[in-house]
């Protein structure tokens, strides 16, 4: 079970959270302007990298806020958590800070 650093509540057990899949997939401002392929791309296509992955998490049984996390899918190490809407942190910076 992961230990996830909620930006508001600090480290909490994974069972308090819900994962919302890949982060940084913005909903198109005007979906009607998208052709079928572009809409399908938004709706159905997600990446599943081996390595660092930006994910949406919700502290469902805590502060109930959504936030994003960078998780290494190989080691499950969580490299950073940051508020929804914030830019994805530069991963090399984090590693240098370690």
């Amino acid at each position: 079970m992961l230990l996830i650093e909620c930006p508001h509540c600090g480290p909490r057990a994974e069972i308090e959270f819900r994962c919302g899949g890949e982060a940084h997939i913005a909903r198109p401002a005007d979906p009607s302007a998208l052709d079928d392929n572009a809409w399908a791309e938004f709706l159905f296509y997600r990446s599943s990298p081996k390595g660092v992955h930006a994910e949406r998490w919700n502290h469902a049984h805590g502060c109930q806020r959504w936030f994003n996390a960078l998780r290494d899918t190989m080691s499950d190490r969580i490299l950073a958590t940051y508020p929804a809407g914030a830019a994805r942190p530069n991963i090399t910076t984090i590693e240098a800070a370690r």
């Binding site: 819900r18 919302g20 949406r56 919700n58 469902a60 109930q64 806020r65 959504w66 929804a84 809407g85």
Partner: peptide
Amino acid sequence: AHMEDFLQT
């Protein structure tokens, strides 16, 4: 949860 997700994100 669906509503909160859209509202927050």
